[in-house]
Design a protein around this nucleic acid. Structure first.
Lengths: 331, 331
DNA sequence: AGGCGAAGTCGAAGCGCTTCGACACTTCCT
DNA sequence: AGGAAGTGTCGAAGCGCTTCGACTTCGCCT
């Protein structure tokens, strides 16, 4: 193992000079710097990062990204979080340590407590996540991606799902649609008060009222059969329907297919917009994974700097117009 | 910041006693240990991991996982690597640092050299990866997931694609098929000698010869149209064909559809097996991402321990029988 | 009673690194 | 010429931690 004294000896200078030459914290003559750098290269010297913490230097900044890497969660989204977090963290001179969900909260606790990271980003949290109590008492700052039911004592970023619901309605209203429906999550999700789902409903309903649209909301289980049933029911009960917002990833395609089978062409007869990322060419408010990851890092850095931050940060939604929405054809 | 001396003072013992109480490297009375642990808890003491390296202790083990998190690569596979690497690494008491491809090799170099990791796992390498020369001269050990054209001076794990090709043929031969074809990668891939592609061809051809099967190989661009053309050509030139192996993810579904359109039912008239993971219910030799990740960590640990390891480790393929292959119906 | 080994604790030294204060040397200004 | 104001370098001290050797206590065996 090569130490700073080895480099110093080879370059014919004092260890402190090497330190200054490498850190640039004091002026060093060009010639000396050159010799030091050469010695570093030749010996393959790599300062032992940790020992800087002693001697008053900076502790190498490491933040842990806690993400379930294998569960049912959409890997593409998690990857996008991860990429964004790494990039943003590097911008703030932080490294990112990967922590997968250990066996249960207890395992996670052990892993995190033995980890050299001084801050946490927890991706994919649920409204009543079992990790929340633990996070609240953790001695290291953390930022959640997602939106717990109770945010007190926590910091989190999420897409503003309420605004997303509104945005979809506004988009449809702007296209001239007067009768709209929201096809939402499976019924059981609403019972377990999954914040997102209800926020979308609230935004959707409020915006529809504001624009004087006739609106209805239907939960929908995540199966093609359920999608067909919902489509049929909508056509039966709301024959004037021309705009649909879907907040249920699994059901977007089946639903469009079902409407097609029932004789409604999308978007000619019926406009469909989705809340949440799909891989389909559907007009949608995507989950801005990159912005969420970057936002989480940003909040964390602010916390580490001692700046006060709000408990919940909601990112403004952005609607991407794709092939499934169009102006209402005058009836 | 809480130091070991603070804990010691509160527990009424010497700092060294705290150190021993926590590390267990010398016997400490139950009572003293209790008091130390209590003080640790009350003060929220967390030893500054890095400074252990000084004083002769162990440097905290960190390995860097270099993975392109956003490129065109299949995120599901990358995630699976990542998960497996993290799990395996934890088993060997290592943390995993995430490094995304910085801007070009140069950026990557800077990031990695400033990173406290003492070993690297590089996922998704290409046969002539631009990073190879750099990895060869790197002063830290590394293991690649993938198979460089030239492995000298490197360590890598990969699926044994040659054996995968053979395995598919054996599977088909076992089902009674006598005339088989391999639909491979786009032609340009073969020109750029992408190792995998050619290894599959070699395995396929050798196994076919060994089993006395009539075989042919066709490259295929990654478009539905190309798939259709290949299907037509196969039927024209090899009317007796009953078994097809596809080593081209993008084309599996289009190809099956094309055969269907030409009047051949899969698997009744034609058996189709794929090399490489698809999300379709197709008989296939999947890329064992979990095993690859775990294998990479394993190799790395062995290297770090000074055990010599082979340059290339090839994992035996495993064929999963699904709905697209069946015994040949006697003609 | 005396000796011995084990158990338990402490102080001091040392790890690789950074930082502080001091020193020598150069430049530039009057 | 003589000082002030940089420049560039060094030695020593110190960071939080571990480890080593030494010391005290204690129970146990002769």
């Amino acid at each position: 193992m090569v130490r700073i004294t080895d480099v110093a000896r080879r370059a014919g200078v004092a260890p402190s000079t090497v330190s200054y030459a490498l850190s640039g914290k004091r002026p060093i003559s060009a010639e000396t710097r050159r010799r030091v750098e050469e010695s570093v290269r030749e010996l393959g010297y790599r300062p032992l990062t940790g020992t800087r913490a002693a001697g008053g230097g900076h502790w190498p900044n490491v933040l842990a990204l806690v993400a379930p890497l294998r569960a049912g969660v959409d890997p593409r989204t998690v990857m996008e979080y991860a990429g964004a977090v790494v990039t943003a963290a590097r911008g703030h001179d932080h490294d990112v340590l990967l922590v997968t969900r250990g066996e249960g909260v207890e395992g996670l606790r052990r892993v995190v407590e033995s980890t050299p990271a001084n801050a946490l980003i927890v991706a994919d949290t649920e409204p009543h996540d079992a990790r929340l109590p633990w996070l609240r008492t953790l001695d290291r700052p953390s930022v959640l991606i997602g939106h717990p039911a109770d945010t007190t004592g926590l910091t989190c970023v999420d897409l503003d799902f309420g605004a997303a619901g509104e945005l979809c309605v506004e988009h449809l209203a702007g296209l001239g649609h007067r009768v709209v429906a929201l096809v939402g999550a499976p019924p059981e999700v609403y019972l377990r008060d999954t914040g997102d789902a209800q926020r979308v409903v609230r935004g959707f309903t409020a915006a529809a009222a504001r624009h004087g649209l006739s609106s209805s909301v239907l939960p929908c289980p995540a199966s093609p059969a359920a999608a067909r049933a919902v489509a049929e029911r909508l056509l039966r009960e709301r024959p004037a329907l021309t705009g649909v917002v879907v907040h249920n990833k699994a059901v977007v395609k089946p639903l469009i297919d079902a409407f097609g089978a029932l004789g409604l062409r999308v978007p000619a007869d019926l406009s469909v917009a989705a809340v949440g990322s799909t891989s389909l060419p559907v007009t949608s408010v995507d989950v801005p994974a990159t912005e969420l990851g970057a936002g989480a890092v940003d909040l964390l850095i602010r916390i580490l700097n001692g700046t006060p931050v709000p408990e919940a940060t909601l990112l403004p939604p952005q609607l991407t117009h794709r092939a499934t929405t169009a102006p209402r054809t005058t009836p």
